[in-house]
């Protein structure tokens, strides 16, 4: 999948042939959304005991849209605040906070996402909000961590040279540090979004309306057909989003 060893230039990035995998997964997602409600006979064959072979409490398209909304909302908050936090603690005036923030980001990442999700409930109650908050809190960590690593890996002599050329601190940040750190930051965002999609699905258990709903309903009612429908859609959604990141990122190894 992520096979091209070369770092893609801007023009390459837009070439159609590089987007075959994401487009393929996107098409698969679309076809599944349209076809799923008409596959009653197939799912009835898979689970003959099911009273109703197709999950109909909400249309799949609504569940997908809401799932994406939860992940996108949480991810954008996490990206903006995570990258800004990492920038702040690498400036001279914020450097005192660097050890604390860096430690916190790595300790926090050992916390299992389900536990964070569960702990949001006593605090915020049931529904979409605690899911979003848990996703933001958890999603922040890889972004902060990777931004710190990315900025930290910029060669000090390069930074010196830029300053020597008369660049202002903000120019150094925007034109040197962030572009050089971008691949590492993007890898952090990818981790964060991947975990986000999976955790949003589990968010169904605390009342967020996502593609996890059919799975949870299927588990509760012993309806394998529901479980399969939810699982297939979530799986294809995750593969689609991941293939987009795989295109944006230069190959890792």
């Amino acid at each position: 999948m992520r096979s091209d060893p070369a770092i893609l230039g801007d023009s390459d990035l837009l070439a159609w042939r590089h987007w075959a995998a994401p487009l393929g997964w996107f098409a698969a997602l679309g076809v599944l959304l349209v076809a799923m409600p008409h596959l009653g006979a197939l799912f009835a064959a898979i689970d003959p005991e099911a009273r109703e072979p197709i999950y109909r409490r909400d249309p799949f398209i609504d569940l997908l849209a809401n799932h994406l909304l939860v992940v996108a909302g949480a991810s954008s908050i996490a990206i903006v605040s995570g990258v800004s936090a990492a920038i702040m603690v690498t400036r001279p005036w914020g450097r005192d906070f660097l050890p604390l923030v860096s430690q916190l980001a790595s300790i926090g990442q050992t916390f299992p996402p389900v536990a964070v999700l569960a702990l949001a409930v006593p605090w915020l109650g049931f529904g979409g909000l605690p899911t979003v908050v848990a996703l933001v809190l958890y999603g922040l960590l890889p972004i902060v961590r990777n931004t710190l690593v990315g900025i930290g890996e910029v060669d000090p002599s390069t930074r010196e040279a830029a300053r020597g050329m008369g660049m202002s601190p903000s120019q150094v940040l925007w034109q040197l540090e962030l572009p050089l750190a971008a691949p590492v930051i993007l890898a952090g965002i990818r981790t964060s979004v991947t975990v986000g999609i999976a955790t949003a699905a589990i968010g169904s258990t605390i009342g967020a309306k996502t593609l996890g709903d059919p799975i949870i309903a299927g588990i509760i009612n012993g309806n394998t057909a529901y479980i399969l429908q939810g699982a297939i859609l979530i799986g294809v959604l995750a593969l689609f989003i991941d293939s987009v990141f795989a295109r944006l990122l230069p190959s890792q190894r």
Binding site: M1, I46, D47, T194, I197, A198, A201, I202, G212, I215, G218, T224, I227, L228, G230, A231, I232, I234, G235, A238, L239, D242
Partner: peptide, 21 residues
Amino acid sequence: NGVLSLIQTIPSLALFGLLLA
């Protein structure tokens, strides 16, 4: 590597569901 990272990408709840049937 391709197969293993494909598995890793699939959300846990979905993978449990896919194995269940």
